[in-house]
Amino acid sequence: MDSLTRTLPASWFCSPALYQLERRAVFLKSWHLLGPVTRFQSRSETVVYEIAQVTLLVENRSPESEGVDRDGIVVYAQEEGREIKSYITPSGLVFATLSLDTPSFEEFFSGLEELVNKVDFTKLPHRRSLSYEGRFNWKTMIDGFQECLHCQYTHPTFSKYYPPTFYSVTNHANFSQHMADPSKPSDGLFLYFFPICTLNVYGGGMSSFRTLPTTEPGVARMEFDYYHSGSDEEFEEYFRFVRQVALEDFELCEMAQRNLERGVYGEGILNPLKENGVAFYQQRVRALVRGEWDKVKREREKGSVKVEAREVGMEEGKAIAVL
């Protein structure tokens, strides 16, 4: 049993101090999916993103007559003096960082382009976006996305098209590919981008969501984008289908978070086959957060980090309790 991977303790889903470490160690050092280039085709609209309390702005500055265009897309931080990096894949996906403390795109997502370049993301127009808060930690939602043990009883409609019997997750460098049927790798593209973004191409359309942390550990903001090239009627049918799945997950996550906060669930063991996607991302979070805390302790021992420790918001006793 000692060799099996254990879940993150419940404290990691409820602690404000832990979130401050996550913000520095995970969010500020990751690449985040903003969407395909079709999300930014309105020359009159500035698309605003807030990720871990950093605001990013995206504009398309190319001439209107050029139609779908990627060369005019500009991503920048709202905060004056904050430098970021952005990247557009050959297939048309736009990614950005929250700071310069991030590896190159190719290093962070090694092997991703070979997979996503099989899809032309410039062919699906943006149809609708939604944003609302849920009473759960960002990791609670990612837990659910990264496994499908719950799919058969929580998502009966989805399970008709993608039976969980053959469902598998393959983990790569900071991303995971979900396959409903490993013998049909082209039937639906389901991707998770560490730490908070997903991309799902199935049912005739494409959707993506971001699970965005707030300063309150038990609250996350969900942002959804939907793309479809069909008629209005065809889009609405697709939209109803994917929204049903999203709402089922939303309810499940709020109930799970309540159990975490009440102490009903503390810590457990992950199934090495059916929950390998959860183990993959949780181990990444654990390693990065512990590395950041070790860095803070080393700097504190040098006598030069009183401000740093205050920014982290974690005293020694709290660190021992949650790490």
Rank of each mutant, 00 (worst) to 15 (best):
residue 243 R to N: 14
residue 284 R to H: 07
residue 278 V to R: 10
residue 249 D to M: 15
residue 306 K to M: 04
residue 246 A to F: 10
residue 247 L to T: 07
residue 280 F to D: 14
residue 242 V to T: 15
residue 273 L to A: 14
residue 249 D to R: 12
residue 312 V to G: 04
residue 277 G to P: 10
residue 281 Y to A: 05
residue 276 N to T: 12
residue 284 R to A: 12
residue 238 Y to N: 03
residue 239 F to W: 11
residue 235 F to R: 05
residue 297 K to H: 01
residue 255 M to G: 12
residue 305 V to S: 13
residue 280 F to P: 05
residue 251 E to W: 12
residue 312 V to S: 05
residue 273 L to E: 13
residue 266 G to Y: 00
residue 237 E to C: 06
residue 244 Q to K: 07
residue 278 V to L: 15
residue 235 F to H: 05
residue 272 P to L: 06
residue 290 R to S: 06
residue 264 V to G: 01
residue 267 E to D: 09
residue 263 G to L: 03
residue 251 E to K: 15
residue 299 E to N: 05
residue 313 G to I: 07
residue 232 D to Y: 04
residue 309 A to S: 06
residue 290 R to N: 11
residue 261 E to W: 06
residue 272 P to W: 11
residue 309 A to D: 02
residue 272 P to M: 09
residue 237 E to N: 10
residue 287 A to P: 09
residue 309 A to M: 13
residue 248 E to D: 12
residue 286 R to Q: 09
residue 290 R to E: 14
residue 293 W to L: 03
residue 270 L to I: 04
residue 281 Y to G: 03
residue 285 V to R: 02
residue 263 G to I: 11
residue 303 G to P: 09
residue 295 K to S: 14
residue 313 G to E: 07
residue 250 F to C: 03
residue 254 E to S: 02
residue 240 R to T: 04
residue 314 M to P: 01
residue 257 Q to H: 12
residue 309 A to N: 01
residue 263 G to V: 06
residue 270 L to M: 13
residue 298 R to T: 03
residue 241 F to K: 08
residue 304 S to L: 09
residue 291 G to R: 11
residue 279 A to F: 01
residue 240 R to G: 01
residue 294 D to A: 02
residue 306 K to N: 06
residue 270 L to C: 10
residue 282 Q to W: 06
residue 303 G to N: 09
residue 271 N to L: 08
residue 271 N to D: 15
residue 238 Y to I: 13
residue 261 E to C: 12
residue 241 F to E: 02
residue 281 Y to F: 15
residue 241 F to D: 07
residue 303 G to D: 10
residue 245 V to F: 13
residue 265 Y to Q: 08
residue 310 R to E: 11
residue 243 R to M: 13
residue 268 G to R: 08
residue 294 D to V: 00
residue 275 E to H: 09
residue 307 V to L: 11
residue 312 V to E: 05
residue 235 F to L: 05
residue 231 S to K: 03
residue 312 V to Q: 08
residue 285 V to N: 09
residue 308 E to T: 07
residue 310 R to S: 08
residue 314 M to R: 03
residue 245 V to L: 14
residue 234 E to I: 06
residue 291 G to K: 12
residue 299 E to Q: 08
residue 313 G to V: 04
